[in-house]
Every structure is written in structure tokens, then in C-alpha cells.
Design a protein around this nucleic acid. Structure first.
Lengths: 152, 152
DNA sequence: TTTGAAATCGGGAGACC
DNA sequence: GGTCTCCCGATTTCAAA
């Protein structure tokens, strides 16, 4: 889909605050409300806007303990890979899982309550998955930047 | 803030789709529209709901190249740390930056167009920041799971 | 209940063939 | 002239306050 500079501005605003009214957006973009409305609908239909979500404060939910787990598989057969990926996707503690290059195969972002919950997660969930070779964990000490907005 | 099971359900729904109407939510939760409205306002006021954002399709924006950069600082003085954190936060290619335990000090999620853009980013932006000791990059091969919704 | 936004329609200006 | 795209204004519908 081709985007002009107005679309790009619109996407920038919606990435920061998706609940602005079309009226507010129309003022910022010097456009009529209808034009804003139709551009947004087009961006939604094209799939460029995938989803609107609420971002929560993990601290207030007692889920402020974030760990990055690097995972290496035992053997890299296709069956192992699809199997592991399906299983890990089901774990609610795992917010993100990327297949990556380098020494380890996967990078996981894990969110739990505290060290104790992490220990339980590792023993009962992650390392009990099939095909796991080895893991290495880095604990989050502080969030320097944590954004979902990509720069357009 | 204390949450009952209805609040938790509400948060689960809003993390999946923040643009549902209160009417839809009231049906799912067996509640009146007004009750839903007031619960949401309370969650917003308390800061538990931090933000509503639009999630975009990186592929369609030609920003499908994601890299995880592990960064080690040269010296860990307080000045170096605050300086580096302020500078890296300004880089639009860096969506996330966490101070982590382990061999490296920081883990960055970097989003660019392609390998060429990444090369430019590394040379002109990241490694030209002050206080950088060494870096190590892992390229994203595939997204297995990528969610913003924490499990409540 | 009242206010205001979202959704929809008809139409007009400009680009292109 | 005919088609397409983009924008505006007015109106109706429906959710929020």
C-alpha cells in the first residue's frame, strides 16, 4: 500500500494514542473528520494497522520481573523446531519469542512476578519442554526504553 | 489498586482489542454499560492502563528487519550510564532498551529496513555513541510470538 | 437524558486517460 | 467526456458522559 505524508503522520499519532477522536486528529492534520475517518479505515483494511491494544503497567500487576531467556535446541530437525515453537507460544509468561541467529536459537521475553515465580517457570515449564538443549537467562535490571511505536 | 475478577477480565479484553465499545464489553462481562465505563475510567486514572496504541505491520512499512544488540559499556561510571541511556533512548531505530544482568550490560531491540540500513545504524549511530565497549548482534530470523498482552 | 462522536451519503474539485 | 481519487458538509445512528 502506498502511503503519503498524511498517512504517515496519522500512523505516528495512532501509535502514540489510539483513542484520539477523529476530530482531534483532523485538527492536527488539517483535514476534515471524514477524510481522517476514511484514511484510518483504509489503513485498517489493508492490514497495516493490525490491532489496537491497551498497554498496562506491569509493576501495578506485580509482574515487574522480566527475564530474557536464550534457548538452544538439542537437535535442529524440522519436527523439533515446529514442536518447540508451538509449545512455547502457549506459555502465558512468554510475551515474545524470536528465532534468532547466533549461538542461541531463540530469544524469549518472559514476564513473571518475582525470582521465585521465575524459578518455577524454568523448572516446570521451559526446561520441561521437549528438545531443549541449553538456556541462558539475563535479568532485566531497568527499562531504559520500551516502546511499540516504530519510526515512520 | 485492588482488582477483582471482573477488572481482570476487562484488562484481558482491552489488551486484545482496545477499540471494543463498552456495549460489547458489557455483554462479555455480564455487566451494565455504565459499570464497564466506570471500571475502565478507574483503571485509567490509577495508571494501570498506561496507554492505548495502534500496532502496525512492520513488513508493510518495509521495516521487517529486526536485530537484537547486546551492548557492553567501556566503564560503568554513573555518568557513562546515564549518558548512554539518554542517547540510546533518542534513537528511533531502537524500540526497546533494557539494562540487563550477564555478560553484556544492555539488550536493544532495533528495527530497520534491511541489512544495509542496519550497517548504517551501527556505524553512524550505535557505535558512535560514547562509552560503548563492545556489541554483539543477533538477527531475527522469524517471529514465533510477539505480544504486548501480559497474562492476568 | 443529553451531548458528542462515529458512520454514512451525496456531491464537488482535480488528475489522468 | 468519462473515470478515479480525495476531500468536504450534512445527516443519521449510536455510544459516552
Amino acid at each position: 500500500m502506498k502511503l503519503d505524508s498524511i498517512d504517515k503522520g496519522l500512523l505516528r499519532y495512532l501509535q502514540e494514542d489510539a483513542k484520539q477522536t477523529n476530530k482531534e486528529l483532523s485538527a492536527k492534520l488539517n483535514l476534515s473528520v471524514t477524510a481522517v475517518y476514511e484514511r484510518i479505515k483504509k489503513l485498517e483494511r489493508s492490514g497495516l494497522i493490525k490491532q489496537y491494544v491497551a498497554i498496562l503497567d506491569k509493576k501495578q500487576l506485580s509482574l515487574g520481573f522480566m527475564v530474557f531467556c536464550h534457548v538452544k535446541l538439542a537437535q535442529h530437525t524440522e519436527a523439533n523446531i515446529t514442536d518447540f515453537e508451538a509449545e512455547v507460544s502457549k506459555l502465558p509468561e512468554v510475551l515474545e519469542c524470536f528465532h534468532v541467529s547466533g549461538e542461541y536459537d531463540y530469544l524469549l521475553k518472559v514476564v513473571v512476578e518475582d525470582m521465585d515465580a521465575f524459578r518455577t517457570f524454568m523448572i516446570n515449564k521451559l526446561t520441561s519442554l521437549n528438545h531443549i538443549g541449553s538456556t541462558q537467562s539475563s535479568f532485566n535490571i531497568s527499562e531504559v526504553k520500551n516502546s511499540t511505536a516504530i519510526s515512520i
